[in-house]
């Protein structure tokens, strides 16, 4: 019963790589949200439902929102100055 965990760990390593390789920050936001979901699945398979709940809420909802708002504020500031 360890193969799902192994596959999930490999997918998480891949999604982390995708986050780093998305150089455009606007694309990286979606890679971060996907990474949060993949990590939540990994945590669930590692028998940690509390941690999976926390990761979904923080890593896929709140953190990408903060990134998007920061990018938007940077774009607005750039046109203003």
């Amino acid at each position: 019963m360890i193969w799902p965990v192994a596959v999930a760990l490999a997918v998480a390593a891949l999604s982390g790589l995708l986050v780093v390789l998305s150089r455009d920050p606007k694309r990286q936001v979606f890679a971060l949200a996907a990474n949060g979901l993949v990590l939540a699945v990994v945590f669930f398979l590692l028998r940690a439902p509390d941690v999976a709940l926390s990761e979904i809420a923080v890593g896929s909802a709140i953190t990408p929102f903060l990134f998007l708002v920061t990018l938007s504020a940077i774009a607005m500031n750039r046109t203003r100055s």
């Binding site: 982390g16 780093v20 990286q28 990474n35 590692l46 940690a48 953190t63």
Partner: peptide
């Protein structure tokens, strides 16, 4: 902002290690 995203990847490595 891309740098901060990569920092969060570093943090996720600790989650994986601990669990």
């Amino acid at each position: 902002v891309h740098l901060i995203g990569c920092l969060s990847v570093c943090q996720s490595s600790t989650y994986m290690l601990l669990l």
